[in-house]
Amino acid sequence: MDIDRPRSLDETLAAAGEYPDATLLAGGTDVMVEVNFRTRQVRRVISLRGVADLSEWNGTRIGAGVTYRRMELGPIPALAQLARTVGSPQIRSVGTLGGNLGTASPAGDTHPFLAACDASIEVRSRDGGTRILSWSEFLTGPKLNALKPGEVITAVVLPEHLPARQEFGKVGVRSAMVISTVSACVMRDEEGRTTVALGAVGPTVLRAARAEEMMSAESHPSAEALAEFSRLVSDEVRPITDHRSTEAYRRHASGVLARRLLERCLAA
């Protein structure tokens, strides 16, 4: 096995261009599980650990190398909330935003936030320059993303104006260190425009468009409107039954969680 340890973004892109099949290693918290369990063959690694450019966080542009720990302590409320639920302190100190996108698990904890605020993903390559993809273009399926060989996730770009009211929640059976059964992020801006994104209830994170449309039209939502919002969310998610939970529970919990998050937005 060979390992490249680029020190700059240019060096990183050069290495990725030369070895398009290389494993990109950031925090290692997903890659190494596959290595340890012998489900991933690794012949060449490009370590992103020393690439300072990737760890920059300027306002709404968050470098792919920003760790959950930094997100937890950062200024964006829902991002901080979700970061606190990721794995353990040990995971959060090294796991990165870019890694969560690279792995593209349907239960990826950052995804509901990114989807709810319509974030874009910036990817770069030596030969193809920079591509900016919407979250929905980037996340293409369970553990699948739009990254091409030779490309590196460099940053997440958030909209210039994030709604002040933004709430994240995650349902799991344990109080810490748990993969989400359902996760959700709700945002509501001053005009009442509401977005809701849900994780672990579809092949990728998804937005509940009808629920959003309905709630965005409500300036002072009544209890009935909240119930309808909840019902629409439950209707729009596409969960499955697996060893962690059942389709019916996930559908139910999606609606409950989304409604509670919206209530928190309204109370804020």
Partner: peptide
Amino acid sequence: CEQGECGSCTVIVDGDLVCSCLVMAADAE
């Protein structure tokens, strides 16, 4: 556990608390 879910292998690398099972040794240079 070799998957960062138990903390038995916890060490400190460059000041960060980490699971050493999830650090690629070659990357610890």
